[in-house]
Computed example of a mutant assay.
Amino acid sequence: MNNQSNKNVKFIDLGVIDYKLGWDYQTQLFEKTVGVKIQNRKNTPEQQDATPNYLIFCEHPHVYTLGKSGSPENLLIGEQDMKARHASYYKINRGGDITYHGPGQIVSYPILDLENFFTDIHKYLRYLEEAVIRTLLEYGLEAGRIEGLTGVWLDHVSQQNPRKICALGVKSSRWVTMHGLAFNINTDLSYFDDIVPCGIEDKAVTSLAQELGAGQDINKVKDQLKRHIADLFEMDITS
């Protein structure tokens, strides 16, 4: 085990990036971090290197992604419709079912060695959700969790009209994480009509713009979300 706990996290904003390019980029960082861990096991404690951590933010052009446990039937449109919608489709190696990414949505990929923070995937997911919940509170929106479902929801208590505003799907190996969260800010929600989001048929999807009745400054939301993630994980973030 790495004897040098490293809470330094490099923050990278990729802007708008093709989904496959973003996936390849985070995979490269993920494999690099796992590689350091494997090498450390062969080294004496004095020879071990601290594992790096990264926090990536980006937006993707229209894309549907299906997780390992997902059902292809939850994509409701065919190839022709997808072309007309200027959307692409990937089966990927995270947990969870199908989701949509597109412009106006903050996608965050934390590539963290959790041994630098805590070794608890459940806690990791709850902290990502909590960062979004705290961000929404700054806009006067009380969000939370619904038992048995991942992600962040509005109207999570009475559940008269529960609406998902942030989806989660992660992968981890040797306590190193990849993939992450998708937080709807100014997202075109009509794209969610083409799928059964996260395989859940009876609940709606929403965005910050929809809830507040106006488009929002996505860069401001990014700054708030980054601050809350850093606080919860006690990260030292550098650009």
Rank of each mutant, 00 (worst) to 15 (best):
V170Q: 02
I200D: 06
T33Y: 09
L114F: 03
K37M: 11
N6Q: 09
G35M: 13
G199F: 13
K226H: 08
I98Y: 01
Q216I: 14
E211W: 02
Q48P: 04
H122N: 14
N219P: 01
E234W: 01
N74R: 12
Y139S: 11
G102V: 10
D24Q: 14
G169N: 08
P103K: 14
P197S: 04
L29Q: 14
D81A: 13
L14M: 14
A214G: 04
M178K: 14
Y19I: 02
G70D: 05
P162A: 12
F57R: 01
G15I: 01
L75F: 12
C198T: 14
R174N: 08
I133F: 10
D194F: 06
Y191I: 03
V152S: 09
E46F: 11
D113C: 06
F233G: 05
F233N: 09
T206N: 04
L212E: 03
N3H: 13
D236E: 09
A50V: 06
W175R: 06
T119C: 14
V132T: 05
Q160S: 03
K37H: 03
V63Q: 02
Y109H: 11
Q39M: 06
I77F: 13
T51K: 09
A209G: 06
H156N: 15
H86Q: 09
I165K: 13
N74Q: 12
N53A: 09
